[in-house]
């Protein structure tokens, strides 16, 4: 099944260590009763395939906004988001839907599983939607994420850690080029968070996709290859 236009660029296999994501001069502000407040004031960022990066910053620094813009969930005012060389900011609504469906995958802090579907259906959902459901890969994911005994359960019947494992399973089942995670461990205790991160990095490595994670935790950020910090709407130059 295809929904809207497909993006050939996003599908072309990337060269090794090719630039997967390039964000340039990205700007975004929100309207408030006191007038517009600039959240992103010209963000520049690059990420290569297979590379993992932690995006850090204080509350309100614009981390989630940046992630949503990259994830095609929201639209920017100015700047470029090149994913595999194609500019995501120029896409239509349908184009962004296709981008979300086929190239990206997102894991949220609130898990945001589909409440009416079982774990099995949730994991397979996006892959099926994108038309690239691979039973063998899905089974492997399920095994690696230790979801075997939870498949017929519904999200409400899972613990937080279990839900987040299902969420990452859903995200990776589609074999995204880029995995985005927005504080995926924010609702988990430290032990569960560590266990989750280990699993996540393991499966990310297995797919070879890029991984961009927003986090507050220096400890977890340290487990990723690169760390950047967002403050006052721009990336701090280390």
């Amino acid at each position: 099944m295809t929904y809207g236009a497909t993006i050939e660029d996003a599908r072309t296999p990337a060269k090794a260590k090719a630039q997967l994501l390039r964000v340039s001069r990205l700007r975004k502000s929100y309207a408030t009763p006191q007038g517009p407040v600039a959240v992103l004031r010209g963000v520049d960022l690059t990420l290569e395939s297979g590379e993992s990066m932690a995006l850090m910053g204080e509350s309100g620094s614009g981390k989630s906004t940046l992630l949503h813009l990259i994830g095609g969930l929201d639209t920017a005012e100015a700047g470029e988001i090149l994913i595999d060389g194609a500019d995501a900011t120029r896409l239509s609504d349908a184009g962004r839907a296709a981008l979300r469906r086929e190239t990206l995958a997102v894991v949220f802090q609130q898990f945001n599983l589909i409440p009416s579907l079982t774990v099995r259906a949730n994991v397979a959902f996006q892959a099926r939607l994108a038309g690239r459901f691979d039973p063998a890969w899905t089974d492997e994911l399920i095994r690696r994420l230790k979801l075997e005994n939870l498949l017929e359960r519904y999200p409400e019947q899972l613990s937080g850690g279990q839900q987040q494992r299902a969420a990452i399973g859903r995200a990776l089942a589609v074999r995204p080029r880029l995995l985005l995670a927005d504080e995926p461990t924010g609702n988990l205790d430290e032990a569960t968070a560590d266990e989750f991160m280990a699993l996540a990095l393991d499966v990310v490595a297995a797919t070879g996709c890029g991984f961009l994670m927003v986090t507050h935790s220096e400890r977890l950020a340290a487990k990723l290859q690169r760390q950047v910090r967002l403050s006052a709407g721009v990336i701090d130059r280390p």
Binding site: Y3, G4, G71, D93, A94, A98, I114, Q126, L129
Partner: peptide, 15 residues
């Protein structure tokens, strides 16, 4: 809240 995850998974608003 119920529809948003589906949307995030790549189904357009129109659909």
């Amino acid at each position: 809240a119920q529809v948003a995850p589906v949307w995030a998974s790549g189904v357009s608003r129109r659909r």
